[in-house]
Write a protein that binds this DNA or RNA. Structure first.
Length: 1121
RNA sequence: GGACGCGUAGAUCAGUUGGUUAGAUCGCCACGUUGACAUCGUGGAGGUCGCAGGUUCGAGUCCUGCCGCGUCCACCA
């Protein structure tokens, strides 16, 4: 007996089959010369947190492709791993350390902090991997890597060394976002801006030795007067007249295309500039000339002499037309400083107080210095005016304190082309896409990639952090002494050439860089991987290692080749069993290098380059571009052939999901509620090419399960998503209980998932869910029950004679050859449809159109296999006369063959349920007819031992039969039409109706052949069919092109009602006919449209007219006109 | 400010190079449970494809403009 429950229980299947797959080693990918490789490198999740819906989408698609390719016979590697995510991870650990123990990183020191982060990392890595596994991820888990493990570290060191030696890494200045509270640089995306009330100070800078006719002062305006202490110039536009004209004509262009309501505003602006031209232009021209003459100004308060320079940054249409230049504390001013060769004066200490450069203001905080500077300027009569003005200020997301732009020494990778014009790193990466060696799907994303790389901006790779790959550079001020010490290591200095000889020739690279003090240079020594003893020797020689670490993206850029063992060509990369990736915690480092074989590292050349990168669009620049670049540089080949960019998941309000908004759905909650397969299937159905996905979410009442709609809620600082039945307010008033959700069904209150508070321990919490996943759950249930039906009918059973009510035995499934003679219409049809569907699915998957593939396979499963095929074979499986028992075995065999193919087709989408069913099917049908052999014959073969390793169905081409499909369609249409009549006349399902069909003789024959299906599916008895059939009186009719059906309904027919129904049909047909006639009457259409289109319209028209005639005949019969 | 995308049924989305009557899922309405499945079946209602122009024999699809929305990048004296 089949013991399948009525509903699929995912929990059991998920645990059972995942460990089965893993223990069998099905996920493992190793070089196999007999197979082609298929490689996907996972976009590394950060070790900072849990997986979210974006990961679920990203992971599902990769697993889907990997499973599909594996079944197609590829050696499919999906490489897992995690990213150390420098800034984010260190920030999380530092924050927790501070909150829980009140310690800062300076309290514990570098090594201790890094150790703490390792502990955190191990914990979270486990959690993330666990989550990925619960999604069914068929990664080769033996190969799990971490961007700070030994293998990746070696690749990072080697890459850095090569770049440095090639002169592609250099030291330079750059303004960073400095958090004075945490004393660290923060990334752009950790900076937020807020508008506050501020002032706009107009300050006079005295001109030194003004000539007759020249102004005594130049006026500038600033929102940050204290920065004048770091000013090194004042700029004026080099051609103010042209610039003003340009501004005016740009505005005039706008005016031409602007909406009416915007016009007055633009006109006002034009007026203002015109006025300014009159009032300021002569002065600005004069200043420009003074700048050209190299005239100097006296910096107020510090009495420094600074030049007046001509630079386009100074916009004559703004302010006074002049602008102070503070290269060390403003991004734009920094650029001006570079262009104009101005010195940069840093006036800040790391803690945000002013340093000795600020002279008398040294030691003051920024705010205090501003007050004093303003007061002193006023006292010196240099302050012209103070305006109130709303200004935007940058704040650190982490410390919530103000961000200061801060000039610092950083390391860069040169992206531009070489001096001789040969392509640089950026150009190489651009060429790879332009020549289609890397292809984007959808193609439009190539533009994002090319535009960004086209700027060829140098890549700043240093970060002021402790968590990460430390920069392998040791430096010391250049001197006789330091040169001599380097000479001990084989470094020689000949004029400006630095050479390295001897045993360290390949382990060291040396160049020069700017030292802190002007006039001094630094000797920069880069130490190659595996030569850390040289670092110690350098330290002994008075060199210091750079304190910074590398940008996280530097290591993740190497992911595609580093994980495969590059640069080690001697050994295969080690597998996790022999591999520790957490040196500090493990206490000892394991040796890098895995199995040594005569052939060297066979893994790298086999799996590189990868096949496809699956990612979201926000890291096309940060990550994708850099992987291509380093791949080309290190490997001489691109890291992957395809880049598939999938959509983002948004909430019902169209906003990005995130923890900080409270609208994030936890994939684990969903898996818990709907099952992994349901989630995967639904997610795959979302993944199209055009749109991001809106996933409306609800809160699920923990008491009764009711769904409560969300709403947006504005707090002082952010907009969050909360339940629409919110009771209480945020921020939670002192002493008040936390806000709750009130359930509209059961009236119970509960806390809910929100970024605004942590729910009380043990309290019932309303989680965020989405009904959309019922789509996948229902599909799985349908598949489950269809299979349940099949399995029930494969066992021996008992039939009952319709007439005698005598029982008789039904045979169980036995394997056996099925030839075309054994096949009924529906068998041939479902095999034809299966052939078409599997081809279509593979085609869509190869174009990464997962939504289309999901639809195709769902339609086949539900609307064709379940709704039609299973229904049609029921009579054969359960004959009602003992003499018909022989119809059962062929039906069973075709059913098994189709189900077998269907499970394989579905496996990449819903792996757990298909494996479960595959194994159940194997118990009763270990040998199944294969559809991929010769057409029209099903030969039994033993099934693969697991669905995951079964071959992807390639149904033999010959099964496809379009003419059969269209005949079948007529049958379907007829049945639907009969059902329609039954529904309209409310005929009970158990009452048989007679059916007469007027049609050509050949059609009539076909209908007689399938007469039993009319009975089976529409409870209709085909009484007559043929050209001679005439409409019986009191009957309902329908027409389907080449056949008219009549259902005599003596006593049931309401003549008026039927007349109306038919008249409605007639009017509809007439509408269509008019449309077609109009087209054909148009000589232009007939002449210009392609012949096949015209023919099609003619054919359609004929058909429509036939139908219309039939309907009109029916109407006349009914007594209408 | 620049780039890219989106706007199609009450909701969420498909709609291949322009070509008969614009589809699906959920929801809705009516009917239906002894035989795989109510997480189901059968039938049905529901759309002037954001707006305005244009190209074309023909536009949801191509072009221009506008309106609304989103994402990324840049910038903000």
């Amino acid at each position: 007996m089949t013991d399948l429950p009525k509903q699929y229980d995912p929990v059991d299947a998920q645990a059972k089959w995942f460990s089965f797959w893993e223990s069998k080693g099905y996920f493992d990918a190793d070089p196999d010369p007999a197979k082609t490789s298929h490689t996907i490198m996972i976009p590394l999740p950060n070790v900072t947190g849990a997986l979210h819906m974006g990961h679920a989408l990203n992971g599902t698609l990769q697993d889907l492709i990997t499973r599909w390719k594996r079944m197609e016979g590829f050696e499919a590697l999906w490489m897992p791993g995690t990213d150390h995510a420098g800034i984010a991870t260190q920030a999380v650990v530092e924050r927790r350390m501070f909150e829980e123990e009140g310690l800062t990183r300076h309290d514990v020191g570098r090594d201790a902090l890094v150790n703490r982060i390792w502990v955190w990392k191990d914990q979270y890595e486990q959690r993330i991997i666990g989550q990925q596994k619960s999604l069914g991820a068929s990664c080769d888990w033996r190969r799990t890597r971490f961007t700070l493990d030994d293998l990746c570290s070696k690749a990072v060191r080697r890459t850095f060394f090569r770049l440095f030696k090639d002169g592609l890494i250099f030291r330079g200045k750059r303004l960073v976002n400095w958090d004075t509270h945490l004393q660290t640089a923060v990334a752009n995306d950790e900076v937020y801006h807020e508008k506050t009330q501020g002032h706009f100070w107009h300050i006079r800078y005295p001109v030194i030795d003004p000539q007759p006719g020249e102004p005594e002062y130049v006026t500038i305006a600033t929102t940050r007067p204290e920065t004048l202490l770091g000013d090194t110039a004042v700029a004026v536009h080099p051609d103010p007249e042209r610039q003003l004209e340009k501004a005016i004509s740009a505005l005039k262009d706008d005016l031409g295309s602007a909406a009416d309501k915007e016009k007055p505003g633009i006109e006002k602006k034009i007026d203002a500039i015109e006025k300014r031209k009159k009032s300021h232009l002569p002065g600005l021209i004069q200043l420009r000339d003074m700048a050209a003459a190299g005239r100097l100004l006296r910096l107020p308060l510090l009495d420094r002499e600074i030049p007046l320079v001509a630079d386009e940054w100074a916009k004559p249409e703004l302010g006074s037309g002049c602008v102070k230049i503070t290269p060390a504390h403003d991004h734009n001013d920094y650029d001006v400083g570079q262009r104009q060769s101005l010195p940069s004066i840093n006036i800040l200490n790391p803690d945000g107080t002013l340093n000795e450069e600020a002279g008398p203001y040294a030691g003051l905080t920024i705010d205090a210095s501003r007050e004093k500077v303003v007061a002193d300027l006023a006292a010196a009569d240099l302050l012209v005016e103070v305006e109130d003005r709303e200004i935007e200020k940058a704040y650190s997301d982490r410390s919530k304190t103000a961000i200061e732009p801060y000039l610092s020494d950083q390391w860069f990778v040169k992206m531009g082309d070489a001096d001789d014009g040969s392509p640089g790193l950026a150009q190489m990466a651009m060429d790879a896409v332009e020549s289609n060696r890397v292809r984007f799907y959808p193609a439009r994303y190539a533009k994002t990639y090319l535009d960004w790389l086209g700027e060829k901006r140098d890549w700043c790779i240093s970060r002021q952090l402790w968590w990460g790959h430390r920069i392998p550079i040791w430096s010391r001020v250049e001197s006789q002494e330091s040169r001599a010490r380097l000479a001990d290591l084989g470094v020689t200095f000949d004029e400006d050439r630095i050479a390295i000889a001897g045993e360290h020739a390949d382990a060291l690279a040396v160049s020069r860089g700017d030292a802190l003090d002007p006039g001094e240079t630094l000797l920069l020594v880069c130490v190659a991987d595996g030569c850390d003893d040289l670092g110690s020797q350098l330290e002994a020689a008075g060199f210091e290692q750079d304190p910074d670490v590398l940008d996280t993206w530097f290591s993740s850029a190497l992911w595609p080749h580093a994980t495969l063992g590059w640069p080690d060509t001697e050994h295969d990369p080690p597998l996790s069993s022999a591999f520790s990736n957490s040196p500090s915690v493990a206490g000892e480092r394991s040796a890098v290098g895995g199995q040594s074989s005569a052939d060297g590292n066979g893994v790298l050349p086999y799996f590189y380059p990868g096949s496809v990168l699956v990612t979201s669009r926000d890291i096309i620049t940060l990550w994708v571009a850099r992987m291509v670049l380093t791949g080309l540089y290190n490997m001489g080949d691109v890291p992957f052939r395809h880049v598939h960019v999938h959509p983002k998941i948004l909430d019902g309000f169209g906003q990005t999901m995130s923890k900080s908004k409270g609208n994030g759905v936890d994939p684990l909650d969903l898996i818990d509620k709907y099952g992994t397969d349901a989630i995967r299937f639904t997610i795959a159905s979302f993944a199209g090419e055009t749109q991001d996905v809106r996933l409306p979410v609800e809160y699920e009442c923990p008491h009764c399960g009711e769904s409560i709609a969300p709403k947006l809620y504005e707090t002082d600082t952010q907009t969050v998503v909360v339940p629409s039945t919110l009771k209480g307010e945020f921020p939670v008033p002192e002493g008040q209980p936390k806000p709750v959700m009130v359930c509209s069904a059961c009236g119970e209150e509960s806390q809910f998932t929100t970024p605004l508070y942590d729910a009380d321990e043990g309290a019932p919490v309303a989680r965020v869910v989405s009904e959309r996943f019922e789509y996948g759950r229902n599909f799985c249930n349908k598949l489950w029950n269809a299979s349940r039906f099949a399995l029930m009918n494969l066992e021996t059973g008992e039939g009952e004679d319709d007439k005698t009510k005598e029982k008789f035995p039904l045979p169980g499934y036995t394997p056996g050859e099925v030839t075309v003679d054994d096949l009924k219409l529906e068998d041939q049809w479902i095999l034809s449809r299966l052939a078409t569907t599997s081809e279509e699915v593979a085609e869509l998957l190869s174009r990464y159109q997962f939504d289309g593939a999901t639809r195709a396979i769902r339609d086949f499963t539900w609307n064709e296999f379940c709704d039609w095929y299973l229904e049609m074979i029921k009579p054969r499986l359960k004959p009602s006369r003992p003499e018909d028992v022989s119809t059962r075995p062929p039906a069973q065999r075709v059913l098994v063959a189709v189900l077998d193919s269907l499970l394989r087709l579905l496996h990449p989408f819903v792996p757990f349920i298909t494996e479960e069913l595959w194994q159940k099917l194997a118990e009763i049908a270990p040998e199944r007819g294969r559809t991929d052999g010769e057409a029209h014959v099903l030969l039994p073969e033993p099934a693969a031992e697991a669905c995951i390793v079964a071959p992807w169905p390639r149904v033999a081409e010959g099964w496809k039969d379009p003419s059969l499909e269209s005949r079948f369609e007529r049958l379907q249409e007829t049945i639907v039409a009969v059902r329609n009549v039954r529904a309209v006349y409310k005929i009970s399902p158990s009452t048989p109706v007679p059916l007469h069909v007027k049609c050509e003789a050949d059609v009539a024959n076909e209908l007689h052949d399938v007469a039993e299906q009319f009975d089976n599916l529409a409870k209709a008895v085909l009484e007559q069919a043929g050209a001679e059939v005439i409409r019986p009186p009191s009957s309902a009719g329908f027409t389907i092109g080449d056949a008219d059906g009549f259902i005599p309904l003596e006593g049931l027919i309401d003549r008026e009602e039927e007349l109306q129904r038919q008249e409605k049909e007639r009017d509809k047909l007439r509408g269509f006919i008019t449309g077609s006639e109009k087209k054909l009457a148009n000589p232009n259409f007939v002449e210009k449209a392609p012949a096949h289109v015209v023919d099609e319209v003619r054919e359609t028209l004929e058909n429509l007219q036939k139908q219309l005639e039939s309907v009109e005949q029916i109407i006349r019969d009914l007594g209408g006109e």
